[in-house]
């Protein structure tokens, strides 16, 4: 059931949302189409914030890398259910949170259920590899992979795993018989 829109509810929601963002230390939240302009705006905003915070250069570069790959994953692979006619870019939710120790970059988007198995397999495979294994996989994919019409190189997840040095954290939620919701969180340590 969709709740009836009412103004008081909506005001409560805004405060509630604000409190939850603060509590979870989220400093950027977005839902919508991920266009190239959006990608540029978010990365430059985050870059500015990081340089004000004096994060080490290497951390800033890693956050930038991971943000771009995550955003491009949505824009190239997410289903765009709400606005099929007018747009070529996928849509989804994008969050950046930060505490004293780490940055977390989270994406959520709808994908077709028939794509879940192969995506799961790819992510499991990446998580089972060590540093050297990831390097080999990256080189193999670079040599053998072909650019998709949307400009995907099949390297994004491997690159995220290599840059962060952490396992990819992800989940798939079934929405209906055709679609699933894919959530991915990448963590970048703020210690050099």
């Amino acid at each position: 059931m969709i709740e009836k829109f009412d103004k008081q509810n909506s005001l409560d929601f805004v405060y509630d949302f604000y409190v939850k963002m603060k509590r979870n230390k989220i400093n950027l939240a977005y839902e919508g189409e991920i266009t190239h302009q959006i990608t540029k705006a978010f990365t430059s905003l985050t870059e500015n914030n990081m340089s004000l915070e004096n994060d080490p250069n290497s951390v800033q570069k890693k956050v930038f890398h991971v943000m771009v790959e995550c955003l491009q994953n949505i824009s190239k692979h997410a289903e765009n259910r709400h606005n099929i006619v007018s747009s070529k870019d996928g849509r989804g939710i994008f969050l950046v949170s930060k505490d004293d120790n780490e940055y977390n970059i989270t994406t959520g988007n709808i994908i077709k259920r028939e794509k879940v198995q192969s995506l799961k397999k790819m992510l499991e495979n990446i998580n089972n590899l060590d540093k050297n294994g990831l390097k080999q996989l990256y080189k193999q994919q670079m040599r053998e992979g072909r650019l998709t019409p949307k400009g995907g190189a099949g390297l994004g997840f491997i690159d995220i795993a290599r840059k962060t040095g952490e396992k990819l954290i992800y989940s798939f939620l079934e929405i209906d018989e055709k679609n699933s919701f894919f959530v991915l969180t990448s963590t970048i340590s703020r210690q050099k």
């Binding site: 570069k61 930038f64 890398h65 771009v68 790959e69 491009q72 670079m142 040599r143 992979g145 650019l147 400009g151 995907g152 190189a153 390297l155 994004g156 690159d159």
Partner: peptide
């Protein structure tokens, strides 16, 4: 800096 999509073209 280059993204993964560019890395293919650099190759």
């Amino acid at each position: 800096y280059f993204n993964t999509a560019s890395s293919k073209l650099i190759l």
